[in-house]
Amino acid sequence: MSHLRTRAVHAGQHPDATTGAIATPISQTTAFGYGTLEHGAAIFAGEAPGYRYSRFANPTVAALEAKMADLEGAPAAVAFASGTAATSSVLLGLLRPGDELVFLGPLYGGTEGLMRSLGERWGIKVTDATASGLAAALTPATRLVWVETLTNPTLRLHDLAEVAALARARGVPTVADNTFCTPCLARPLELGIDLVLHSMTKYLGGHGDATGGIVAGSEALVGAVRKTGMGHVGGNLAPQEAFLFLRGIKTLPLRMAAHCEGALAVARFLAAHPAVRAVHYPGLECHPQHALAQRQLQEGFGGMVSFELARCERAAAAAVLDRLRLFTQAVSLGDADSLACHPASTTHSFVSAQTRAAGGVTEGLIRLSVGIEHPDDLVADLEQALRAVA
């Protein structure tokens, strides 16, 4: 199976051996019988295949992990109860007191807030290399480099191949949060990144009805993350949620094509509107990193668009957001439904005003998650909403 559309349907799945069910059954169980003491001991020691307890592994979750490992081109993957649980498990599994974590931002506010909180509590230095550049920020204490394939919410890019090469030359693992792009648009591991992470709650699920996260990469790194996340933190994904993600991923390539089509139409409309000061979307030719986006992204530029109003103030943003009819005000993204939010007061309220300003998160910035509705209807909704500030 070489095509992503085919692999999204079939990878990690097969008809159930007992019933012939095509959909992967939900293994709604806490524990698994292992027959004999010796066989149980071998499973617990990792010397024999098998399941022991759903906090560590579950057949439904394992099918999802196999599917995502295939789509990301990774030897292994481990699923979690949320994207934040996945992030926490990576940080706790790979960092120790005295280590340094370097990130290239701007990041999702929840991620940066978590990093800085853990840093303060556990004695981990957290360094923002956005302004200085990665090469200047790396030190002998650096143990992890973090980047997003498209930054949240201003949709900047970093050259992932360059990031991977710089870090690898110093023996430092790299992590790319690929939530905004999914494997349909970007595959960071192919560019040399060591671990790729998703909030599956977003595009992978696609229907706003399941919460989860996943990390994919080498057996060694994923094994360390799994040991911490499952064995010590207990952030395991429930089998019912895994079933919903397996279902959602089957249509991921088709949905992403619709998201990209709608986002490009919305971005072009906003770029020509007099009430809009700036539009952040890498698919626009005027985007300062459009050439990098063309080189690094595949099959489209994503379903996220953010824009800054000419009246760059919270009251103006509220006036526009409160008039929207098709776009629902909500903080998630990647749903079939279109969503809109004010990052400064929601997703990035976890970080300081200074950090928001440095990342371009102004009071007049609005973030859109463009759904799969017809682009004409979405543009019409934005057009009538913008009359509030025209």
Rank of each mutant, 00 (worst) to 15 (best):
residue 280 H to F: 14
residue 329 Q to D: 05
residue 125 K to E: 00
residue 275 A to D: 06
residue 243 F to C: 06
residue 315 A to G: 09
residue 384 Q to I: 04
residue 153 P to F: 05
residue 82 S to V: 01
residue 77 A to Y: 09
residue 17 A to M: 12
residue 120 E to V: 10
residue 130 T to E: 01
residue 187 R to H: 13
residue 46 G to C: 04
residue 328 T to H: 10
residue 95 L to V: 05
residue 297 L to W: 06
residue 103 F to L: 10
residue 28 Q to Y: 09
residue 245 F to S: 04
residue 374 H to G: 06
residue 210 A to K: 05
residue 193 I to Q: 08
residue 243 F to Q: 12
residue 123 G to D: 02
residue 143 R to P: 02
residue 281 Y to E: 03
residue 208 G to Q: 05
residue 59 P to G: 12
residue 304 M to Y: 04
residue 366 I to F: 07
residue 12 G to M: 02
residue 120 E to P: 09
residue 349 S to Y: 12
residue 128 D to V: 05
residue 160 L to T: 14
residue 114 L to R: 14
residue 225 V to Y: 00
residue 144 L to A: 03
residue 212 G to C: 06
residue 139 T to D: 03
residue 349 S to R: 15
residue 73 G to A: 11
residue 387 R to G: 13
residue 384 Q to S: 10
residue 116 R to T: 01
residue 253 P to E: 00
residue 309 L to H: 00
residue 299 E to I: 01
residue 126 V to E: 08
residue 20 G to Y: 09
residue 238 A to G: 12
residue 302 G to L: 04
residue 189 L to H: 14
residue 158 H to D: 05
residue 301 F to A: 04
residue 26 I to D: 15
residue 193 I to D: 11
residue 120 E to Q: 15
residue 137 A to R: 13
residue 119 G to E: 04
residue 167 A to Y: 10
residue 120 E to W: 07
residue 202 K to V: 00
residue 48 A to G: 07
residue 60 T to F: 02
residue 355 T to I: 11
residue 351 V to D: 08
residue 2 S to K: 15
residue 158 H to R: 13
residue 89 S to V: 04
residue 189 L to R: 08
residue 344 A to T: 12
residue 274 P to G: 07
residue 241 E to Y: 07
residue 30 T to Q: 09
residue 171 G to C: 10
residue 291 A to Q: 08
residue 235 G to Y: 06
residue 38 E to I: 00
residue 21 A to S: 14
residue 340 A to V: 11
residue 51 Y to W: 06
residue 41 A to W: 01
residue 32 F to Q: 13
residue 39 H to C: 02
residue 195 L to R: 07
residue 147 V to Y: 09
residue 33 G to K: 04
residue 165 A to C: 00
residue 240 Q to L: 05
residue 250 K to F: 00
residue 223 G to Q: 03
residue 360 G to F: 08
residue 275 A to R: 14
residue 94 L to V: 01
residue 195 L to P: 02
residue 390 A to H: 09
residue 56 F to P: 14
residue 337 D to W: 06
residue 202 K to C: 02
residue 175 V to H: 14
residue 158 H to S: 07
